[in-house]
Design a protein around this nucleic acid. Sequence first.
DNA 1: CTAGGGTTAG
Length: 591
Amino acid sequence: MARGLSLRKYNAIMPLLSSAVRSYCLLHTHKSISIKGKIGVPINFDKEVKCLDDAVSLFHRMVRMKPIPSLPVFCKLFKTMLSMKHYSAVVSLFQEMRKLDIPINDFVLNILINSYCLMHRSDCAFSLLPFYLKSGIPFNVVTFATLIRGLFAEHNLNDAVELFKKVVRENICEPNEVMFGTVMNGLSKRGHTQKALSLLRLMEQGNTKPDVCDYSIVIDALCKDGNLDAAINLMNEMKQKGIPPNIVTYGSLIDGLRKLGQWENVRTLFSEMVNLNIYPNVYTFNMVIDGLCKEGKVEDAEEVMEHMIKKGVEPNIITYNVIMDGYCLRGQVDRARRIFDILMNKGIEPSIISYNILINGYCKKKKIADAMQLLSEISQRGSKPNTVTYNTILQGLFEVGRIGDAKQIYADMLSVGPKPNISTHSIVLDGYFRYGLVEEAMSLFNKLERKRENTNIAFYTVVINGLCKNGKLDEAHSVFEKLSLIGLPPNVRTYNTMITGFCLQGLLDEAKSMLRKMEKNSCLPDNVTYNVFVQGFLRWSKFSEMRNFMKEMADRGFSFDSSTARFLVDVVRENPSVLDMIPDLRSENKY
DNA sequence: CTAGGGTTAG
């Protein structure tokens, strides 16, 4: 693979590099080759470059100017192009510069390296290193930080960390705050928060002291892990060290807190920020608005949006997406649609997520025709449906029983894209099972396993559930038994599914042994687990066992959910003496 | 006047 190759190439030139770098710092050859020409007319990039064509034609105008604009101007153009994600175009324009014998400097080359990294072609990026040497252009900490980031982007943690260590060990360049931050961010985004934290501690001991970004990276990682105590402690530490948290640091903490529903603490942090003259920006407002929407308070959310406008913070497409999703969550897809129309009228470009939110809203209300209509409008308006769009539509079609249409969509995805992912397959399998198409489901399942498609535990849980619901408990159980062998430990939902299967067949002992198994594997039963058992006991008239079970359930703070309550009402209606057999039920005055 | 790092949504 290219990744292995990249590091080999890098290793091969490394002995050259270290000495070259040193000689380079002495020579400063790059200064002699950069051009001093000035641009005649100043270019306003943001105004002039709106799309790829603008960028390319500006480039061609620039290379014809006399004198030719300075390299910083080319850098600026490339940077604008990168922000529009035209990575490969930057590569081609660079090649044109070479053909035209326009001198290159370290800045341009680092941008080129970044372009390759953003294209997930770190192999190409590495292959540029010899070019630096040949042209006598120095690489620096930016070059290597960019490469490290590129390796992380390709999930190549080992090479990324190795490269970092090598840079440090062989003193190729002095790692700075950004390079440390790049490594810590790469580590924490791949689930290694503790390693990132250790690196931060290492920095605190070393010469390059962590800055506000470095702290923010680790604080964000801790927040994402739900470890808010540690995150807040770290924030207090940085304050004590005289590094004040900034808007981003507060953003991470507010996001972590609101995801845990700790609104009191969100408010505290908010006022703390404002007291420190750090005024909330569009990120901060969006997080708060999203939190309110998720709690069903969409009107409050809209008020916050008006407030931010008054404060001079313009809502962006995310703000509108969040509010639309809020209405959809409450089943008010028509209100969501009104928001959509408003933003269209304002000339704000909807994102694919805007469409997905609305399509999801329509599907949840079983308004498939509206969903399909919107789907067809996406391409007309110059956007492109993605896998999530189609997954949403698929789910909607299965929900209303349009299996033929769903199959057609799935087939289209397989042939022309967007490429189905594990969720797509799970949705289709679940749909097949729900409509009793067990053979089709199993043949798809076997095909996906044979193709060694990426799977996850949710996918297998769908299969286990499908088999259970179609009376194939033994097959379900053997799929379940296979999970640990393929390195996918069952989660609480998987256990609940299997327990439900046993309970439906009256195999309560097997269900109970499953409960012990999950506890042994330190997978804590949740409210669903207990409710499944209660329904099992009720179904098979095991009332005395149920009494004992309900005690344990209450002790652990769990209670009947609405499905159990409905079930109970039916049972009691059939057989009122159940209430005498389980006196505890009378005190369950909830129902 | 130019290059690399951190916060939000389905």
